[in-house]
Design a protein around this nucleic acid. Structure first.
Lengths: 343, 343
DNA sequence: TGCGCTTGCGAAATGCATTTCGATCCGCAA
DNA sequence: TTGCGGATCGAAATGCATTTCGCAAGCGCA
């Protein structure tokens, strides 16, 4: 493979000139530049990223670590970040932790050996000291997405989760529901805690009482959500509507309903967080709280770029994005009587 | 950030010894190794991937380029490849071309500057000479996934598309259907052409005639599939069942049906290629031809690893994977009369 | 014509880890 | 005691691109 020396030799200039053509184009005369470019073309020369990152103190790499790339939220996020990064000349290194923190930490270490210029992190699980120190060792700007971590001083881009919880619940209340189930994630996550808070506020605002029996932790996963939903429906007084706080759990809830022969929204209304491409194709057409995923990804990248450029300094900022209620058909008036109980 | 020299100084050994501890552990005595390791720990030393890739002739990076990471097929593929790669000590660089070949080519160039050790490619669009030469310039093993490219001599891992088309169609025929629509991708893609071939064979085997009016090209995308389905249903003799040859188009087909107030499978049966996590949760519960995505990703990576290790030589091989028919509820007997025509 | 400055270019140092190859030191045998 | 093989270790070269700094040529101006 051709090196910069080969190009220099062929163009009959010094290597410095070739480098200047590549990097500071204005420092070399047009005709010489053309000659050099022709030589590069002929040799189909491509600079060596390793050598380059060795010399400059930057690799042009940005890390993006997510918990589950098969979750549409994260794949959309990746797409948004990659598009925005490409526009700035950065390459993004995607790391999928499968929601396992050892893997996440292994990834963090490997990102360090890659000498990434910056990191966008959607943290999995709780903040361990271990992870905090891994992040610090990176010695690069970090932007948190989706889930904020307190006290580390990083920038963060998050959904207004309280608002999301409030609006979803409010919508169900507006449909006439009085007993509303909540299939939530673990409250140790701020996202879950805040969505719960919004739920409670909406109940309160409507003069409804909060019933802990209607709230389940399904770990943000499909399978447990199915189980949780089954439990809710087995209650003496089952809810007439359910709010699931992420896309995976929404699927679980809908499946649990279908498995018991209950239909939505006739028997039970459902609303979820995260809109999905097929939500308006299948039955029930799911109403949802949509997250502005693309905007979140772009905002995160912009924060990172500004930190890298030195345009942004000082303590971390938190950007809160507004959720958007998408009304389809999965929420209707509660059935007059108790829903048919199939078992 | 600490360098190998700092570690050497602190451990009071030469840099070569530190390097040996890292790379050929057996070449250094246990106690010295421990001392070095302690020094690395204390300095929280991490080797510089750039410098390393400069000296070794490999970067430890594998490229994976896909057309659309938000398509579950590809995000599953990434997950499988990344898992397998991590087990072999490789890092995977995901490139999302958004199905645009300029972007794909830009990615290929950038992968070259990164000096990737190997590439797994799910090619977008047709094979241009341009792309072929970009691949050749990479000078690394290439494994094709999902869509094979003829004549370049690369290894490939593909679905048995003929069989997939055959089985899907056969299933619909077994349900009693006689007029079966095909919402296919562009026939310039072998995947599409072969799925069509399977469809025709199944018709033939059942003594049914092939009606070109029932076949539409929806470009493997949702929106056009919706349109195509609308056209099919507007036919004087609309099909009583439809086979969509990928997940995006399946969604479009289902949506078109729902939009016209038709229900599945009562009015029209639907089967698609690619199984989806929500397929058994919503209505219709979609029957589908599942692709062994994980296995395909793993097979692709293994081929690559064997090429890299020199265990595998010679001309490219093609690994054909068997599809699996997943029967749920979206295929039933055709309605006795013509389906209600709502417009 | 001569002086000083701008501009364009090249030589060489630099960044970090790997690897080759020669040096050293050990124990063991003669 | 001397010599030798083997096990360990270290000095230095190497890979590639960037960048600093000095040099030279070309320019304008007096």
């Amino acid at each position: 493979m051709a090196t910069i020396r080969d190009v220099a030799r062929l163009a009959d200039v010094s290597v410095a000139t070739v480098s200047n053509v590549l990097n500071s184009a204005d420092r070399v005369s047009p005709e010489l530049s053309a000659r050099v470019r022709a030589a590069m073309e002929k040799l189909s020369y491509t600079p060596h990223a390793g050598a380059r990152s060795l010399r400059k103190r930057s690799s042009g790499l940005i890390g993006l670590v997510v918990g589950d790339i098969t979750n549409p939220f994260f794949s959309d996020l990746f797409e948004a970040v990659e598009d925005a990064a490409a526009a700035c000349g950065y390459l993004v290194l995607l790391c999928n932790s499968n929601e396992r923190s050892e893997r996440e930490e292994a990834h963090l270490r490997m990102l360090r050996t890659q000498r990434i210029d910056g990191l966008i992190l959607a943290p999995t699980g709780a903040v361990s000291m271990n992870r905090a120190s891994l992040l610090a060792q990176l010695e690069v700007p970090v932007v948190l997405v989706d889930r904020a971590m307190e006290g580390l001083g990083y920038d963060a881009v998050v959904l207004d989760n309280r608002c999301a919880g409030f609006e979803a619940t409010q919508h169900l209340i507006a449909c006439g529901h009085r007993r509303i189930g909540l299939v939530n994630g673990p409250e140790v996550f701020r996202t879950a805690a805040e969505r719960l808070a919004g739920y409670r506020e909406a109940l309160l605002a409507a003069g409804l009482s909060f019933d802990p029996a209607l709230v389940r932790d399904a770990g943000f996963r499909k399978q447990p959500a199915e189980q949780a939903m089954a439990e809710l429906m087995a209650l003496a007084e089952p809810p007439s509507a359910v709010f699931a706080t992420n896309n995976l759990m929404t699927i679980g809830v809908v499946k649990a309903l279908a498995d018991r022969g209950l239909s939505c929204p006739q028997d039970v209304s459902v609303i979820g967080i995260d809109d999905l491409p097929w939500a308006d194709a299948v039955s029930p057409r799911l109403s949802a709280i949509a997250q502005p995923v693309r905007a979140m990804g772009e905002a995160a990248l912009e924060l990172l770029i500004r930190r890298l450029a030195g345009t942004l300094n000082g303590p971390g900022t938190t950007t809160v994005m507004a959720p958007r209620l998408v009304i389809r058909r999965s929420c209707g008036a509660p059935a007059s009587g108790k829903p048919a109980h199939v078992d």
